[in-house]
């Protein structure tokens, strides 16, 4: 899986599709508040979806490490957390650009914006914590424990708290379900671009992560030979 190439090509094709049909597809006008900026839905939202996937993979490897402390597992957990954090930063940045033109300010203290910022900061803390320990085995072990905590903090910060209060984001108090997944307001034509976009970005992020993992594995090998 680490070195196969079919899914890398798939990721390329899906993203080329996203970046063409993301512009070509006819979007609903509704009350025209969003105008063409609704197309950001194909680019901003998949960042968060792939971030969630990568953090999930990361925490699985952290748990694996805690059950069986192999260095390999820690390399996986760390690399997936790093790429996931990058996606989160991209998500928050693109969100701020969109918000500036849609809500009038890049940061309105919207519950979902605040929650996302807290979630990302917790992942920053993961890397700071690892960096502050000099012993490699401790880095892996304490990191794995912290990663479990960081992952479970995603649920209140991103999924629960923003839904309980009024929010500028769709899905705040008063709306039902997840607007991205089962909302009746998502146009079927947009869905056909959105889901390939999510898969494409996720695969690209996984690809970049595997490169980081392979470098770490190479370093391990070098150390063994030295």
């Amino acid at each position: 899986m680490l070195r196969k190439s079919w899914w890398k090509i798939l990721s390329f094709l899906l993203l080329v599709y996203t970046c063409t049909f993301g512009f070509l597809v006819k979007v609903p006008k509704l009350d025209d508040r969003m105008q063409e900026s609704i197309r950001n839905f194909f680019f901003h939202v998949p960042m968060w979806f792939s971030m969630m996937v990568l953090f999930t993979v990361s925490v699985i490897y952290s748990i694996k490490y805690l059950r069986n402390p192999l260095r390999k597992h820690d390399h996986y957990a760390k690399a997936y957390a790093a790429t996931g954090t990058l996606l989160g930063v991209l998500g928050i940045t693109t969100g701020a650009i969109w918000a500036n033109y849609q809500w009038g300010a890049p940061w309105s203290g919207d519950p979902k914006q605040n929650g996302a910022a807290i979630a990302i900061l917790i992942y920053f803390a993961y890397f700071v914590l690892r960096g502050s320990l000099t012993d490699e085995e401790k880095q892996s072990r304490v990191g794995a424990v912290f990663n479990v905590f960081a992952f479970f903090m995603l649920f209140p910060t991103l999924w629960i708290l923003p839904r309980l209060t009024e929010s500028l984001h769709p899905g705040g108090q008063g709306s039902e379900g997840n607007p991205g997944i089962n909302g009746k307001d998502l146009d079927p034509a947009m869905r056909l671009v959105f889901w390939p976009a999510v898969i494409g970005w996720t695969l690209l992020a996984v690809w970049i992560t595997t490169l980081k993992i392979r470098i770490e594995l190479l370093k391990d090998k070098q150390e063994q030979h030295a």
Partner: peptide, 25 residues
């Protein structure tokens, strides 16, 4: 569509880069 082409070129460049790093590793 000018923007669309620009985005596609960036995407292509990104993929070529990642692909080459992959080959090097």
């Amino acid at each position: 569509y000018v923007v669309m082409v620009v985005v596609l070129v960036i995407l292509l460049g990104l993929f070529v880069y990642v692909w080459r790093v992959d080959k090097k590793i």
